[in-house]
Design a protein around this nucleic acid. Structure first.
Lengths: 319, 319
DNA sequence: CATCGAGTTGCAAGCGCTTGCGTTAATTCT
DNA sequence: AGAATTAACGCAAGCGCTTGCAACTCGATG
């Protein structure tokens, strides 16, 4: 019974009610982040003897259908939701089908989850730009279209971090410096376009995703601006290609999030108390950030090459 | 029986022997291409009433384990293999478990498959560089490490296309201009480094994947070379970020490959004769290609902006 | 040596569905 | 309207496993 596993899963499911299968739910697949985290989580889950079913909820229709029909019972024992903030009724629907649930990049009362410490990451990112001497720092965030469910909580928390850093430094939080667009290269491009078209342009931008930052960089280059001389860009994710572009970015261990998410789901299915874990972030300085050109003659006051926030990975009581 | 679908899948599987589930098998997940094609295929499969199980075979161990144990029977009705060239014994193992099989980006006798017309795509790409006036055109391909199963057939066929174009033009096929590395940004970077370090450097390179092309571009820029003035780079895939970098590349409809792969698997599970389809490619000219600098004063002989090969999508008798 | 307890083994019930067959109701033709 | 054909319906068997219980074996103890 232990080695050959020639048992018929169907029969054993019927008899036990356990499917030995989990569902991984993502808003999109064709993004580096999701591939990475799914891959890592799936491997851990598979190692624990679970099959993994994939669900992509890229439209509101798919999302509501997924939660509406109770097709999960008998199909999966648990659900790992990635970058999707479930509503109370959605959570109920899942619970009603006897599903254990774990979240990556989201929170829910009573559920286990992993996420990065977005507010401190946002704060650190903006602090760094402030230390460089920037005074007009833009924030490029993710637009919450109802037709998409990307975004969710993390970008909001990064915005909170942005505000904190500004407040700390006694800088005003100007509404005109905050723009929100779809989370994609194109979205980042149009956000930067809007920023440049507005009255007084900023000298730096904190962009909540590297993909958007790529788009932003593209329009800056097309506009003939020198990076980082005329404009600094700081991204988020440490995307696989951030290095190619030389993008300064906020790194967080994506693979670890996948692994921890899997572990937490496993615990939840085992009936353990749900853990809430936080992944640390780390600023990776590359070539898209520098003091603003009007300060170029003297070196910035601080010039660390790497900042690791003092929030270690571990259990936290947040939420 | 049609609407509510409150049936217990386990019981129905037991009774019918059909699982209404298919497996999608990929060598890696954390790549744009795979996310895209899986997403599209999964959606089509799901629409047809199938659940999709995900299998990532990123190591030779995982691969052999996957084919060795007969854990598929009773789990899936069919397998969609993406960018994985199955061996004869692997195919037997699958057939022995009653699995229908469809391939994306690979071929096998008697099996349905979709793939791009790699040889004509490679030929077109290199023809374009030749038309631009390049005389030393490098080929950056994928190294077949036994520890990875990426690559496979398509890159080999692209190389064949490269050779054909060179032969047509009466140009020699110099071994020193062909380098092979791992399919990644880093691999592309080291390939280009080797090319620049060698005796007489080429003036252009045809790179079999955009990711490698990104790496190649990175070292060219670091080397202080002007692109496309000093060096032209032509990629493959039309990666989501190719536009950001301005990379000239060979585009092929990735989503369509996913859809067609799903359709073919569905047909195969329905007992139809397996179809072998080919996806057309299309050269997308951007800013990384130009005539070599020593020809800059006069315009190139031909300067199309887009070449659509005359091989339409459709059934073919190849293989 | 007999008895009791612990450990082992085998058996049958049942998980919830599908499927074919026998039965009954509905429908059509003469 | 009666018989024959067809459609609808319900019933029981069985898919291959798990699991609890009964029967049994073995070892240890009084």
């Amino acid at each position: 019974m232990e080695l050959g596993y020639f048992v018929s899963p169907a029969a054993s499911r019927l008899a036990t009610g356990k499917t030995k299968t989990v569902g991984i739910v993502v808003p999109v697949l064709a993004k580096w982040f999701f591939g990475k985290v799914i891959g890592e989580a799936a491997q851990a889950l598979r190692q624990a003897g679970f099959d993994v079913l994939l669900f992509e909820l890229s439209t509101p229709g798919q999302r509501s259908r997924f939660f509406a029909s109770k097709h999960l019972s008998g199909r999966t024992d648990g659900i790992l939701m990635i970058a999707l903030q479930p509503s109370a009724t959605e959570l109920e629907a899942l619970a009603g089908q006897g599903q254990a649930v774990a979240l990556i990049g989201a929170f829910a009362p009573g559920l286990g989850s992993v996420s990065v410490d977005d507010v401190s990451a946002g704060r650190d990112a903006v602090r760094y730009l402030l230390n460089l001497g920037h005074e007009r720092i833009a924030f490029i965030g993710i637009l919450e279209k109802e037709s998409t469910n990307l975004g969710g909580i993390p970008p909001k928390r990064r915005l909170a971090g942005y505000r904190e850093a500004l407040a700390e430094a006694g800088m005003p939080d100007r509404p005109t410096l905050k723009v929100f667009e779809e989370n994609s290269v194109a979205g980042g491009a149009s956000a930067m376009t809007r920023l440049l078209a507005a009255g007084r342009a900023p000298t730096a931008a904190f962009v909540v995703s590297d993909e958007m930052a790529f788009g932003a960089l593209m329009v800056l280059r097309q506009a003939g601006l020198d990076i980082p001389g005329d404009f600094s860009v700081l991204g988020f994710d440490n995307h696989e290609l951030a290095e190619v572009v030389g993008l300064t970015t906020m790194d967080h261990d994506v693979a670890q999030q996948g692994r921890e998410g899997a572990a937490i789901l496993l615990e939840a299915m085992g009936g353990s108390v749900p853990a809430i874990r936080t992944i640390p972030t780390r600023l990776v300085i590359r070539e898209t950030t520098a003091p603003p050109h009007y300060l170029r003659h003297r070196p910035p006051e601080t010039m660390e090459t790497e900042i690791t926030p003092d929030t270690p990975a571990g259990r936290e009581g947040t939420q």
